[in-house]
Amino acid sequence: MSKAGRKALEEAVDSGNPELELQDKHIVKIEDLPGLFSMEHVTRLTLSHNRLVSLPPAIANLANLEILNLFDNHLEELPVAISSLNKLRILNVGMNRLDTLPRGFGSFPVLEVLDFTYNNISEETLPGNFFMLESLRALYMGDNDFEVLSPEIKNFKNLQILVVRENDLVDLPREIGELARLRELHVQGNRLQVLPPEIGNLDLQSSKSCLRLDSNPWVPMIADQLLLGTSHVLEMLRNQSYKFVYQRHLQTNAQYPPKNREAKERKISRVKPQLA
């Protein structure tokens, strides 16, 4: 760890500051931060832009932690103990090398924002209780390896932002239409050909809403309306002619567009770090 990192940690210990900012301090091991896990008063811990390869179970000692930012590290897994942080509201583990989330991950009682953008996670590697995170307001899971989303996503009753761009999605569950509070939906850069008609029931047309659909191999009916704007797509989803097209598409078991495997293999999250 750099001298600047040690100085920042020492100052936090001396001042009793509940917000500990240790981003971009060349930290490779948490063990390089002596006394960190005894700082129970800390409510915000920022360790982004470092070179951490692991997170010890002792992270659970920070019982008052509300915000944990681990963006842009070399983490390949998270400890099961992380879900013991009962006050955690915001967790950012984006831009790492995670293939899975730990068992019991869905037991955070007040987690509102979860960001695991740009990792290697898929529907097969989510823990069984993931969809019990009913307090979630924003879920960022773009640039991963999802091909489908579970219908259990309907359990996220408080979700306002859902970002699943740049995955391998070939289908969206109709249950997304049950997310009454959803105001942002980002599905660009997938393998989607159709949208469930239920998405047309969501409030995604107001000035404070956002719907991103570009860079998908849509059926002509959607592609044509998208040229006119997303509001035209939403209106089309509500009409009977589209519902017929949607049902026919499902029944014919249309062939899915191929994956862009070459692009996936070039991802930084696939490359093992070279540590000094």
Rank of each mutant, 00 (worst) to 15 (best):
K87M: 14
D115Y: 04
M95P: 04
L114A: 11
P79H: 13
R97K: 15
N73E: 00
H74N: 11
V93A: 14
I90C: 12
R89G: 10
N119K: 01
N86W: 10
G142D: 11
L85M: 06
E66V: 00
E134N: 15
R137A: 09
L78F: 07
F131W: 10
L139T: 01
L111M: 14
P56A: 07
G106I: 02
G106L: 02
P127F: 00
D72P: 03
L85V: 06
N61M: 05
S83V: 13
N69F: 01
L98M: 08
H74Y: 10
S54L: 10
L85N: 10
N64Y: 04
L85S: 03
F130V: 10
P79I: 14
L91Y: 07
S84H: 05
L101P: 08
G106T: 06
L65C: 01
S54T: 15
L136N: 01
N129V: 15
L88T: 00
N86K: 14
A60K: 06
M141H: 02
V113S: 05
M132C: 11
G104S: 09
E112H: 14
G94V: 01
N73F: 03
M132N: 14
L88C: 05
P79N: 15
N86Q: 15
L68D: 00
I59S: 11
G104I: 09
P57N: 15
D115T: 15
N69Q: 06
G142H: 02
L111D: 05
N86E: 14
K87S: 08
L98C: 11
L139S: 12
D72Q: 14
N129M: 12
V113G: 01
D115I: 07
G104V: 15
I67N: 07
G128A: 13
V110Q: 09
A63T: 13
N96R: 01
H74G: 11
H74L: 08
N86T: 14
L139C: 07
N61R: 10
I90N: 02
N120E: 00
G94Y: 05
V113E: 09
L136M: 10
S84V: 08
L126Y: 01
H74R: 06
G106H: 07
L111W: 09
N92G: 03
N96C: 04
N92Q: 02
A81M: 04
G104R: 05
M95L: 14
S83W: 10
R103D: 11
V93W: 03
D115R: 09
F105I: 09
L133V: 03
L114Y: 10
D115E: 14
Y140P: 04
F116A: 01
D99E: 13
F116C: 09
P56S: 08
P79M: 12
A138Y: 08
A138N: 13
N92T: 09
L101W: 12
N120A: 00
F130G: 05
M141S: 04
G94C: 11
S122N: 00
D143V: 13
G128Y: 01
